[in-house]
C-alpha cells in the first residue's frame, strides 16, 4: 500500500485551473520531487495534499481519506513547510522548533502544554539533525537566511510525521547547507518516512530524489526516475532550456546552460 495516494486531483483557484486530473502514489521511504517552471502547480499540489486548498479528487494517506481526518490527527501525520520566510515574532530557535509539537498537546485545560519527555526528545533530535543546537537561544529574526531555513526545517522534523511536504526548503541556502539539508531529507526517507519536495535545482532533484514529477501548467508531463524525467527533450519543451547533463560518482547532474528558443509550451 502506498503512503500517499492521489487520485484524479484537480484544483481551481480564482477561476483558473491550477491542477488538472493528476494521479500519483508516493511510497513509504520515498523521496518524491516536484519540478517544473514557475506557475506549474508544484506548490498547489503540495498545498492540496496539506489540505490547505479546496480540491476535487481524492487524497489518501495510508488508505485513509485525508479530507475525513480530524485536524490534530492529520497534523501528527503530515508536516508542512511553507515556501518563504514568515516567522513574525523574535521567538527563540528552540521555541520555534517546539511549535512542531503542537499537534501532540492536550486540550488547553489539561496542563496548558508543559512539554513531555517525547516533546523534548523530538525537539532535541531536530535541533541536532539540522545542526542548529548551538543557536537554540538565538532569536529567529536575528539568524542568517540559511540558519533560519534550517530552524524552520527543524520545526517540521520535530513533528515526527511520517509524511513531510516541503515547498522549496533549500532555496535560500548556500551550496553546503543545500547538500546538508538534502542529506537530512534523504535520511528521513531512509528511516521509512516519505517526503514530497518542491525543487528548482535540477541537479539536487536528480541526485537525491527517488522519483520526480515534472509539472507544466497544471499537468503532468513526466513521472518516473530522475534519468527518465530529466531528458533533453523535456527540459527543452517545458523549461525552454538546453542543459549539460552527465554523471559523476554514478549520480546524474543537470546543468542548465542556455535558453532554447522557442520556449515551447508557453500556450
Amino acid at each position: 500500500m502506498s503512503r500517499l495516494r492521489i487520485d484524479r486531483l484537480a484544483v481551481r483557484l480564482g477561476g483558473k485551473t491550477r491542477l488538472r486530473d493528476l494521479s500519483l502514489a508516493v511510497d513509504a521511504g520515498e523521496l518524491f520531487g516536484l519540478i517544473g517552471p514557475n506557475g506549474a502547480g508544484k506548490s498547489t499540489l503540495v498545498k492540496a495534499a496539506a489540505q490547505l486548498l479546496p480540491y476535487q479528487g481524492r487524497i489518501r494517506l495510508d488508505g485513509q481519506d485525508l479530507a475525513g481526518l480530524e485536524a490534530p490527527e492529520r497534523a501528527r501525520r503530515i508536516a508542512y513547510l511553507s515556501q518563504g520566510d514568515v516567522v513574525q515574532w523574535p521567538i527563540t530557535v528552540e521555541d520555534l522548533v517546539a511549535l512542531g509539537r503542537h499537534p501532540y498537546r492536550g486540550s488547553w485545560w489539561r496542563g496548558a502544554g508543559a512539554p513531555s519527555a517525547e516533546d523534548r526528545a523530538a525537539v532535541e533530535a531536530a535541533l541536532q539533525a539540522t545542526d542548529i543546537a548551538h543557536l537554540r537561544q538565538r532569536k529567529v529574526t536575528e539568524l542568517s537566511g540559511g540558519e533560519r531555513a534550517r530552524a524552520r526545517l527543524a520545526r517540521v522534523l520535530a513533528v515526527q510525521a511520517p509524511l513531510i511536504l516541503a515547498d522549496e526548503p533549500v532555496a535560500a541556502l548556500d551550496p553546503r547547507h543545500q547538500l546538508q539539508v538534502m542529506r537530512l531529507l534523504r535520511q528521513h526517507c531512509d528511516r521509512g518516512g516519505s517526503l514530497i519536495l518542491v525543487l528548482h535545482d535540477l541537479t539536487l532533484a536528480s541526485r537525491f530524489c527517488d522519483r520526480l514529477l515534472l509539472l507544466h501548467q497544471g499537468e503532468r508531463i513526466a513521472l518516473g526516475a530522475p534519468a527518465e524525467v530529466l531528458t533533453a527533450e523535456s527540459l527543452r519543451s517545458v523549461y525552454g532550456i538546453r542543459a549539460v547533463t552527465g554523471a559523476h560518482d554514478g549520480q546524474g547532474y543537470v546543468l542548465p546552460w542556455a535558453c532554447e528558443s522557442p520556449a515551447s509550451g508557453g500556450a
Binding site: 490547505l52 490534530p72 492529520r74 508542512y80 511553507s82 516567522v87 513574525q88 511549535l99 503542537h102
Partner: peptide
C-alpha cells in the same frame, strides 16, 4: 503561539 509560523503552517499543525 503557533500562528507565529503563518496561517498555512499553523493550520497544518492542527490549529483551527
Amino acid at each position: 503561539d503557533v500562528l507565529s509560523l503563518g496561517e498555512a503552517e499553523a493550520a497544518t499543525l492542527g490549529v483551527d
